[in-house]
Amino acid sequence: MSAAADRKVVLVTRRTRLDELIARHHTLAQARFYLEHLNADFSDYLAESAAYAQSLAQVVSGLQAWGRYQLVDRTYLPNFVFAADDIVVALGQDGLVANTMKYLDGQPLIGVNPEPSRWDGVLLPFESDGLSALIGDVARSRRAIRAVTMAEARLSDGQMLRAVNDLFIGPRTHASALYEIQHGAGREVQSSSGVIVATGLGSTAWIKSIVTGSLAVAQALRGGKPSAEYAAKAWDADTLTFAVREPFPTRTSQASIVFGEVSRTQPLKLRSRMPENGVIFSDGMESDFLRFTAGMEATIGVASVQGCLVI
């Protein structure tokens, strides 16, 4: 058996909305009662769950035809150890691909769309049938790979967290974030609702809404005169973009370092002044976070490794 044919495939799965409801309400009947009491369409939850189960069965059949494989639920990703030569398959929405990629170290990642009629799947170019042949091509380096730049947050105590779309630095609640921010030669104390640092892939997501909203406000204040336009970046761009959400100037806080680029030679640094509830999380996964409380310093920069998305 060749080394390529002996490579293990790790399949990352996720629970459907119906699975989450059953876990919360204990039985299918109770989940149905809860949704119907809210006048929600329970049949849509059933259809989504059935489609995912069918797609999962097809994927597993393809993995059985391939050889060595392992299933991992997304909730175990923060503690799962991938082998250097693993091939990784994510069966789910775009968010699952992003949340899988940030735990990888150069392993090829295949995004599989479980229900193309439901999910657009920007990061899901493949469907569940024919997976065995696709894995064979990936194992033998016969498929193109698209590089994806990731962001990285490193704390002064050695902890690290990567992001495929964006990092959020701020409070867990709706309270104000208090911190010192340093970018290049500039340094100031700020009070805001948090800082977003986005990658090229994430430049069309959360940070776009922040910047376009700010531009619209600026345009209104200028009497409708056009202001600058927001432009997204390439997925493999070697820089990140940061934006401060709702900065609030006071006697002790400023609001001049609110937007800019982060590069390998010019990181973004923040020191927390929040006695509690300060966090850093990535790609919308609030449950997987780093504590960022008073005295902790975070250095935000371009990750040393890139994501490898099979296309």
Results as ranks from 00 to 15, higher is better:
S117M: 14
K269E: 15
I311C: 14
Q107S: 06
G170M: 07
A23I: 00
L71R: 12
V112R: 00
D19S: 06
M296C: 07
D238I: 00
L91D: 00
E297Q: 15
T239E: 12
V164G: 01
H25W: 14
R264T: 13
A4I: 00
S141D: 09
A133V: 14
R7T: 10
D120W: 12
W66K: 05
Q219C: 11
L178P: 01
L290F: 05
A205N: 08
D288E: 11
A303K: 06
F259V: 02
I280K: 11
G158P: 03
L124H: 10
Q70D: 05
G111F: 00
A40K: 14
A232P: 10
W66N: 00
E297W: 04
A3Q: 13
R162N: 15
A298P: 07
R154T: 14
L18S: 06
A220F: 13
F248S: 11
F242Q: 01
W119R: 13
T265P: 04
N113M: 07
Y179D: 03
Q306H: 11
T13C: 15
R273V: 04
Q266K: 11
V258K: 06
F248L: 15
A218C: 06
E48V: 13
S263F: 03
V81Y: 02
F168K: 09
A50R: 15
M296G: 01
F248R: 06
P114W: 03
L178R: 13
L96Q: 00
G130C: 02
G95L: 07
S156A: 08
M296R: 12
K233V: 01
R251S: 13
V279Y: 01
R142Q: 11
L134W: 00
R251A: 14
G200R: 01
E152K: 12
L134K: 04
D41M: 09
A205C: 14
S43I: 08
I257F: 13
F248A: 09
V72D: 14
I135R: 00
A23Q: 15
Q58C: 08
I87E: 02
A40S: 15
A220V: 12
A234C: 05
R146D: 10
T173L: 05
A51T: 03
G224N: 06
D129T: 15
F259S: 07
D238M: 01
L35V: 10
S287Y: 05
K269G: 00
A185K: 10
R172N: 13
V12Q: 02
T293R: 09
S304I: 08
